[in-house]
Design a protein around this nucleic acid. Structure first.
Length: 516
RNA sequence: CGCGGAGUGGAGCAGUUUGGUAGCUCAUCGGGCUCAUAACCCGAAGGUCGUAGGUUCGAAUCCUACCUCCGCAACCA
């Protein structure tokens, strides 16, 4: 029985500073897809990692008086810790400073060179001596000065290796034409078409101005510059160009590269060209998500420390609050504004008031009315049907929206169910039935239906909020096995297993108590 | 004329492809309920849909002009 495979990646992040909310965003989104795909039976590889070479690292390390390796070891370990905190279920964590990656990249370079896709030429750039940095003409400011220090720059010509990107314009346009879903959302596709139609230039893929990188084989004063080093992580991680490429054979091509909108171009233009040059299949989809902006950045920076540090948010307000907010607040393709006001609002109204309170009031009634043990008998009524119908049909909409990366809509669907449950309680008014002894079974049925609802909700919620999902199941003594199929059927909840009240899942946040 | 996106009640957004009572969430106000985390449920108020023209019986939705904001315009991960 060979399961269908699914390979999903995040970008590899650049450890020149600490992880911020944008990193968390890409990674959490990828995690949701990975968890979902596993849940529906795919054999998933979920890759994330770090892009650890380059001049900026070299300079930062020098500044901090550590070696580049020490610098990246330190920062990368922080990223890894953050992924643990955020409950990221990645199968691999690649670092471009790993030996296996460096070896593979060298082989890729050599192969491309032998195929005559790489040649040696001259890189023209404007060099700023004090900054030790090269700039392209378009990067210079309006007076042709260094954009960093505003001082004079001088035109220099350096020997460098180039990749024949210019050969691929037509092929890439054909790719876009053939696969309309290659770049999502569609607005990004238009940008790329426009960009490629203007013609592609060959790509400079080596540098001599710094040394922190993979050496060019047989020409060691050159180091391989970002593209060939970073983008190829998606295949070297699977063992491409290694002694054991079994994983590569079974998982490549990637099903989905999740990237920030700022690097769509590299993934949608350069990466396919490199793969074409290597005669490898192309990834199926690139999704470029939006950015988190801060509306009132002055206020943010005034507060002590880096307040939008995702680890801090998780620690203070729970992982799932963060995961939920990021994916619920704005559509995945568009930019959003991060504000604590919005964060607290979401937390309070959706998570604490609607979901958390629902679990709490339900368990409270089960304890109070049945000493924590529901009888098995049932007495259904017409109004149950509406609730049940919306429950068993929800999985389709949720799955559909996750597949399209419309996380926000998927969550909306799930929370419609939560609202339906709260309404159902109000409509059936269990506390009134209590007065009438004959209504005991009906009362139990209502509570059963609610437990069952929460079983299904916990299942649908699992890819987004694994922690919360498990908490709900634990509180209602539902067994731990998470299986998407079980979201399609009503009636699997086992009555008569004792339930006792536990912690509140999402405590309410009181704005006035929060010091921002 | 480089390409593209956006401008809708206090806030954030959907609706524009296939014109026909302007919808959602939050906030506000009123009511209900008491199982619950001052939570839950119901109802109300609030918008001439960037501006000005045009097409049409009828336009947020189509056309024209203009204004404002934003993204892309390659070696920045």
């Amino acid at each position: 029985m060979s399961k269908k495979t699914f390979y999903i990646t995040t970008p590899i992040y650049y450890p020149s500073g600490n992880a911020h909310i944008g990193h968390a965003y890409s990674t959490v989104a990828a995690d949701v897809i990975a968890r979902f795909k596993r849940l529906v039976g795919f054999d998933v590889v979920f890759l994330t990692g770090m892009d650890e070479h380059g001049q900026k690292i070299e300079l930062t390390a020098k500044d901090k008086k550590v070696t580049p390796q020490e610098l990246v070891d330190n920062i990368s370990s922080k990223f890894e810790k953050l992924w643990k905190i955020l409950n990221i279920s990645n199968d691999q964590f690649i670092r471009t400073t790993s030996n296996f990656h460096k070896k593979a990249v060298k082989k890729i370079f050599t192969l491309l060179k032998s195929k005559q896709k790489i040649y040696k030429g001259f890189y023209k750039g404007w060099y700023c001596t004090p900054c030790e940095a090269f700039w392209t003409e378009t990067q210079l400011d309006e007076n042709y000065k260094c954009p960093d220090c505003k001082r004079d720059v001088k035109l220099t010509k350096d020997e460098a290796y180039f990749f024949k990107l210019s050969e691929y314009s037509d092929k890439i346009l054909q790719l876009y034409e053939k696969n309309k879903n290659f770049i999502k959302p569609a607005s990004r596709l238009n940008e790329m078409i426009n960009f490629v139609e203007n013609g592609l230039e060959d790509l400079c893929i080596s540098r001599t101005s710094f040394s922190w990188g993979i050496k060019v084989p047989n020409d060691e004063k050159h180091v391989i510059y970002v593209w060939l080093d970073a983008l190829t992580n998606y295949i070297t991680a699977l063992g491409y160009m290694s002694d054991n490429n079994r994983k590569f054979e079974s998982y490549w091509p990637a099903d989905l590269h999740i990237v920030g909108k700022e690097i769509v171009r590299f993934h949608a233009v350069i990466w396919p060209a490199i793969l074409m040059a290597l005669d490898l299949p192309l990834p199926k989809k690139i999704f470029g998500h939006g950015w988190w902006l801060t509306k009132d950045s002055s206020k943010m920076s005034k507060s002590k420390g880096d307040v939008i540090d995702p680890a801090y948010l998780c620690k203070k307000y729970s992982v799932d609050a963060v995961r939920y907010f990021l994916l619920r607040q704005v559509p995945f393709g568009t930019d959003g504004t991060f504000s604590f006001e919005a964060f607290f609002k979401r937390l309070n109204s959706d998570l604490a008031n609607d979901l958390g309170n629902l679990v709490f009031r339900l368990i409270s009634m089960i304890e109070r009315y049945f000493q924590g043990k529901l009888p098995e008998q049932k007495e259904a009524e017409e109004k149950d049907k509406i609730l049940i119908h919306s429950l068993v049909s929800a999985h389709k909409k949720v799955a559909y929206n996750i597949e399209r990366l419309s996380f926000s809509l998927a969550l909306k669907e799930i929370f419609k169910l939560v609202t339906a449950c709260n309404k159902y309680i109000d409509d059936t008014a269990p506390w009134k039935l209590l007065e009438n002894k004959n209504k005991n079974i009906r009362l139990a049925t209502i509570l059963y239906n609610l437990c069952e609802s929460l079983r299904i909700i916990s299942l649908l919620l699992y890819p987004f909020m694994p922690d919360t999902s498990c908490k709900i199941r634990k509180q209602l003594t539902i067994d731990k096995t998470i299986n998407w199929e079980d979201a399609k059927r009503f009636g699997l909840f086992k009555a008569s297993i004792p339930i006792t009240k536990q912690e509140v899942i999402f405590p309410r946040i009181y704005l006035e108590k929060e010091k921002l």
